[in-house]
Design a protein around this nucleic acid. Structure first.
Ligand code: ZN
Length: 310
DNA sequence: CGTCTTTGACCTGCGC
DNA sequence: GCGCAGGTCAAAGACG
């Protein structure tokens, strides 16, 4: 819990040079033609500066609009998630208490009223439960949510309140890893898989050694989206239209995440951001530019140091 | 041959 | 105590 949230905050505060247009050499004054300071050139620079200023103002206003839109989208998305969970949980009366409690905790609760930590029964405390919704092809009957972890199916049941069967999985690292997950199609939306994760992996993410810290309790979501199933927000939900490579949206999501007290939701957003970023070709280019920019910066700093030292 | 899935049987908790 | 429903076990079979 603390481990993951700490990872979230640190990963979000990484100050990458994400401007692909930025070239460190552009900031350096021209050395070879430094004595060419004609008035013609000066006026050209002024025009250019004016254009850039106009562009900046225009971008600012555009960003403000996007900012507002994103805030609204985020708020509505969270409200929708809460609303949907309430409807699902109260549609069946029995055996839902644990899930109500845990989902209340994982979603952040406001509409349910608050529960004091002391009110949790030992049964609820022993496992942290998280839920993930995954968009799939409605005709796809395989209850598989590929989250990067390796699961062993140990049971399948048809439940009373849902015509589609529920599949039970254990982490393949069991018994050393106690994590379980239940996967079932949503009763009112066959294209929606609901995966319920219980427990926390006590090992690294198999597909990304050393990166397990960035995953939610069950090690879920966009870590390794399969072609057939996409964690919500990757292809067909609101989050899919969010371009996290946009620095404004990115910062907006940061504030949205910060505003959300709940770590599961935070992790969800972080994963969506990471997923969006890694899938975006422009991000790759931006990342490459950022890295080369940093390297060039370092090189130039080193050169400056060596020059100043000598 | 080892691993994983399937599936019926069994266990457990809860309401009546 | 009984029945119901969710959850788990474990034997058998499939698969690479
Ligand atoms: Zn595990």
């Amino acid at each position: 819990m603390d481990r993951t949230s700490a990872a979230c905050t640190t990963s979000l505060t990484i100050d990458l040079n994400t401007n692909p247009m930025h070239n460190p050499t552009d900031d350096q004054p021209p050395t070879s033609e430094g004595n060419d300071v004609g008035g013609e050139r000066e006026s050209g620079l002024n025009n250019e500066a004016y254009d850039l200023e106009q562009e900046l103002n225009r971008t600012k206003s555009e960003n403000e609009k996007l900012n507002d839109m994103l805030t609204i989208i985020c708020r509505k998305y969270i409200e929708l998630m809460q609303k949907q969970s309430v409807e699902e949980l109260f549609s069946s009366k029995k055996r839902k208490y644990d899930e109500i409690e845990s989902f209340d905790r994982s979603i952040g609760n406001s509409s349910f009223g608050h529960h004091c930590c002391n009110e949790w029964s030992p049964k609820e405390i022993k496992s942290n439960v998280s839920r993930v919704h995954v968009r799939i092809d409605p005709s796809d009957t395989s209850l598989v949510v590929k989250d990067g972890y390796h699961w062993r199916k140990y049971g399948q049941k048809v439940t009373r309140d849902n015509p589609s069967p529920r599949a039970y999985y254990k982490c393949s690292f069991a018994p050393s890893c106690p994590v379980k997950k239940k996967v079932q199609k949503s009763a009112n939306d066959p294209s929606l898989l609901v995966a319920t994760y219980e427990g926390q992996h006590n090992h690294h993410h198999p597909s990304t050694p050393g990166l397990s810290v960035s995953l939610p309790p069950g090690g879920v979501a966009g870590a390794n989206p399969s072609p057939g199933s996409t964690p919500i927000g990757c292809s067909s939900s609101a989050a899919s239209i969010l371009d996290f490579t946009d620095p404004i949206i990115f910062s907006n999501m940061q504030s949205a995440i910060a505003a959300t007290e709940n770590t599961a939701v935070q992790q969800f957003f972080v994963e969506q951001m990471a997923s969006s970023l890694t899938r975006n070709p422009s991000f790759t280019a931006a990342l490459a530019a950022a890295i080369t920019g940093r390297i060039l910066d370092d090189v130039s700093e080193d050169n400056n140091d060596s020059l100043s030292n000598s």
